[in-house]
């Protein structure tokens, strides 16, 4: 049986799609057969970040409405062969998604894959609800700022009450906290919430901390998931997070501000 994992946050722009792309790629690199579904119908982005936008023919809405077979809509990743992408539709809106349609797709994908990642849209409307409804596990992406923490808290409440597992009174959805865009220097200056403050409110196990990094934007723009950039701190942090997700014990990195030496202060070098 495949594990259904939703990547969600409530708030927009915190890095859900970046994290979905990195996570899916990381799981696939670890040898797991992984498919990542873009639930953001109408505002699809995942295909861009995965660099497959030119190969999209059919999408999830075509499959639900019976215009295409699931196999026709799935896009095989060219970098990691155990990875597939099911893109969202650009032209339709979220009402085109139905619970029965999504259920059928997830059931069918369960036969062939180990992990089904659902990249949730922002908000708590229909698309987000459907993305999390079937989840066995949830990766809650949060930025170290109050509004993002508040929205993540809201989503956790929804997961505990509106998911299929909650409705069927099964074991609750397993929750993981992924703090993204963390800048230890700004935390030290009091401009960002401390990691402990975020954890104090959300109170779910910490899966990883992704440092703010210029390499993320670069990776998104070139369509390469940042986890493939082994040089960047963000890429390494995602690799750690995926390893922890698969049960490995790794220490948290990149959560302390770097002590900048005299020369780096003089020449203003920045962490990649």
């Amino acid at each position: 049986m495949a594990q259904v994992v939703v990547v969600t946050s409530g708030k927009g722009g915190v890095g859900k799609t970046t994290s979905s792309a990195a996570f899916a790629t990381g799981l696939a690199q670890a040898g797991k057969k992984t498919v990542v579904i873009d639930f953001d119908v109408g505002l699809r982005n995942l295909d861009l970040i995965m660099g497959v936008e030119r190969r999209v023919v059919f999408d999830i809405v075509n499959v639900i409405s019976g215009e295409a077979k699931l196999n026709q809509a799935l896009i095989r990743d060219k970098r990691v062969d155990t990875l597939s992408i099911l893109p969202a539709s650009q032209t339709r809106d979220k009402d085109a998604l139905t619970k029965e349609g999504v259920a059928t797709i997830i059931e069918e994908l369960s036969k062939d894959f180990d992990f089904i990642l659902c990249d949730s849209p922002a908000g708590i409307e229909k698309g987000a609800m459907l993305a999390l409804y079937f989840a066995d596990q949830a990766v809650v992406v949060t930025n170290p700022e109050v509004s993002s923490v508040r929205d993540s808290d809201r989503i956790l409440g929804v997961l505990q009450s509106k998911s299929k597992r909650a409705e069927e009174k099964k074991d609750p959805v397993k929750e993981h906290l992924l703090v993204t865009r963390y800048d230890p220097a700004r935390v030290e200056r009091g401009e960002m919430l401390k990691l402990e403050d975020v954890q104090d409110i959300l109170r779910i196990p910490l899966l990883g901390v992704i440092p703010e990094s210029e390499s993320v934007l670069k990776a998104s723009n070139t369509g390469n998931p940042v986890i493939l950039d082994g040089e960047s701190q963000a890429g390494q942090a995602y690799k750690d997070a995926v390893a922890r997700f698969l049960g490995e014990d790794r220490p948290m990195r990149f959560i302390e501000a770097e002590k900048r030496g005299f020369f780096s202060r003089l020449f203003g070098g920045r962490a990649a």
């Binding site: 508040r150 809201r154 409110i201």
Partner: peptide
């Protein structure tokens, strides 16, 4: 027994309410 999260509202109608966890902002 759990944390009460943002957007959640718990009403003990006609009695007392005991929350063992935290009551988060927005709850």
């Amino acid at each position: 027994d759990q944390a009460v999260r943002a957007g959640q509202r718990i009403w003990a109608q006609g009695g007392d309410l005991v929350v063992r966890g935290t009551v988060n902002p927005g709850a």
